[in-house]
Amino acid sequence: MSSESLREKYGEKLVALGESHKEIVVLDADLSSSTRTGMFGKKFPERFFNMGISEQSMVTAAAGLALSGKKAFVSTFAVFLTRTYEQIRQSVCYNNIDVKFVVTHSGITVGEDGATHQIIEDTGIMCGLPNMKVIVPADTVEVSSLMDYLVEKTRTPYYVRLSREKFPVVNQPDYKFIEGKNTVLRDGSDLTIFCNGSMVGHALIAAEELKHQAIDAAVINVSSMKPFDRENIIKYAKSTGHILTAEEHSIYNGLGSRVAEVVSEEYPVSVVRIGMRDTFGKSGKSWELFDYFHMGIKDIVDAGVKCFLEEDKYETVS
């Protein structure tokens, strides 16, 4: 699997779509070289607003632009957007207007910058907002298709979570993003790994290794965190009976929590969650951090194997 930068793709798509969609405006808060919105700013300076290190002003101005018929893309690092949670709530979501928050540098893959910059709770925060939809793309193919969808088909608030790191390309070139639909990247009959973002690549490798241990694991990309594909989750809860979740996010209020909610309401099976616990991140290389926080490929494999060990033990006792 070759790796590509999701934020680079975001910048390219903004420029391409900006050409044909004059209603697009872009706002950034002094991070446009990192978020890649600077590419749009260079091409369309009159429609690009560098608001300085003033996220509250950026979000409210985006609301005003959207209320005046513009499609506003707002970008900064994920961690800094959350300081404007209340502006997002009141001025954007309550008005239910066309503002797209596309944030970069989420999660622990920010790496060396450390805990202050590694937000692991943002998806949960945003999913809680009425009218907000939340997408966590897995690769550049998904970002590309998602951007077309957001620009051409939607007029309401979205939160799109991107990262600093390059991610392996996991989707087919003809993949089309469909809101509220999971993508089965690998089918399986013993165990289902629901994952998103950076963890999709990890899960696919882990599934290969599990196969060597005679465990047939499905890998499903849950990029659409809200709306959530309950149907697909219930279907795989029934067909495989074992669920693992893997996310570069806190397991509290994240993908793991949401999957557990769905199966406990509809078809209870055990859910093992891999992700950040109740802890801040730390400085390090991102691959080191995955291991440090027990979110690496080996951790997924071990958790998968353990599902069946536990089951054997249980059967022996009874």
Binding site: V25, F49, Q56, S57, V59, T60, A61, A62, A63, G64, L65, A66, L67, S68, G69, K70, A72, E86, Q87, R89, Q90, S91, Y94, N95
Partner: peptide, 20 residues
């Protein structure tokens, strides 16, 4: 023109409208 109630946000919204 816009919902308000949490203080401090209307001027930014006004700026966005003025820019538009």
């Amino acid at each position: 023109e816009t919902s308000t109630g949490s203080l401090g946000q209307g001027l930014g919204i006004g700026l966005g409208m003025a820019l538009a």
